[in-house]
């Protein structure tokens, strides 16, 4: 039996060691994340353009301006549309396909994951330029195909809605293969026998997916879902910047790009900071969801 003194000395030692283990990460996070965050929070109460000596304290004006500006409504709608498209193509589609690949296909299925992952190696800026070219309705290959079948493609870069779809496709191109791989590996935790049994009972595939696979792969799925949203909104930043700069008439801007626009196109540092803080708060809701599902998921599995 250890004495109480020993016990507390041991605990102190453990604590110190734990702290040492976390310290390197903590240091970079404080320097490059938390300090900037506090600084941004501070800036969000000022009207300033970063270089002018005039830095005016405006309290909550930036937040009020943002929340009353009709552009913010457009941006919010756009952001939602981006999320819907990204979740559809970068989460639901690879999720279903991972299920199909694992349980509904037998022969020659392994080659696909190798090939599908290759597009994840691309740089977003390269993807953006390529897609602009390929989707050029007048002179690009997609335009040529549409021409051949007698369809006139609209100018997507000037068509609200469509512009978001094409820009999202760049992010889809980048993340699809990776998400597919991760979801595929998540399928490992579904016992083969369960699926075979369900097949014997002639359960429809859609039921097998929703009733058996989804509950058993929820941790992976929630992780990919959250990353699809959080990372996806940042992934589309580069194509927005390269292809449309948020146009036409803000129809392709999203909450991240708008923050960049405030900071580096209009030089309204305070507005940019306020929008960033709002973005962060919205994302925190997602963190809460992550906590609810992924962290808990690990419990009921063990």
């Amino acid at each position: 039996m250890k004495s109480a003194d020993d016990q507390s000395a041991y605990r102190r030692r453990e604590r110190r060691l734990a702290f040492l283990f976390v310290l390197p990460s903590l240091a970079v996070f404080i320097l490059f994340m938390f300090y900037p965050l506090l600084y941004t929070l501070y800036l969000s109460f000022f009207k300033w353009n970063m270089v002018s000596p005039k830095m005016k304290f405006v309290a909550l004006d930036n937040y009020v301006n943002l929340l009353t500006d009709p552009v913010t409504v457009t941006i919010a709608e756009n952001t939602l549309l981006y999320i819907v498209i990204l979740v559809l193509f970068n989460f639901l589609l690879p999720y279903v396909l991972a299920f199909v690949n694992t349980f509904l296909m037998k022969k020659g299925k392994y080659i696909y994951k190798t090939l599908l992952f290759s597009s994840s190696l691309i740089a977003l800026v390269v993807g953006a330029i390529l897609f602009q070219w390929i989707f050029n309705p007048v002179s690009g290959p997609v335009g040529a195909i549409a021409d051949a079948v007698g369809v006139a493609l609209p100018a997507w870069s000037k068509t609200p809605g469509l512009v978001i779809l094409v820009i999202s496709l760049v992010a889809v191109y980048k993340a699809f293969g990776y998400n597919f791989l991760i979801l595929l590996s998540g399928m490992n935790s579904v016992p083969e026998e369960l699926i075979e049994a369900a097949k014997l009972e002639k359960a429809p595939n859609s039921n097998i997916f929703t009733k058996i696979v989804v509950p058993l792969t929820s941790s992976t799925a929630v992780y990919i879902l959250i990353m699809t949203i959080v990372q996806g909104l940042q992934y589309v930043f580069t194509p927005i910047k390269v292809l449309t700069q948020g146009g036409p008439n803000d129809a392709s801007s999203n909450i991240i790009y708008q923050g960049y626009d405030y900071a580096f196109t209009f030089y309204e540092t305070g507005m940019s900071a306020a929008l960033a803080i709002i973005t962060m708060l919205i994302f925190l809701v997602l963190l809460y969801l992550e906590f609810r599902f992924v962290e808990k998921g690990v419990y009921y599995e063990n």
Partner: peptide, 27 residues
């Protein structure tokens, strides 16, 4: 390791995944 404030610290770090890069760029 078991130490007090572990969960809090963990979530503090994880929350940074949700900080958009526009926040950190200028500072």
């Amino acid at each position: 390791f078991h130490f007090k404030g572990k969960t809090a610290l963990y979530f503090l770090l994880i929350s940074t995944i949700f900080i958009p890069f526009t926040v950190t760029m200028i500072p």
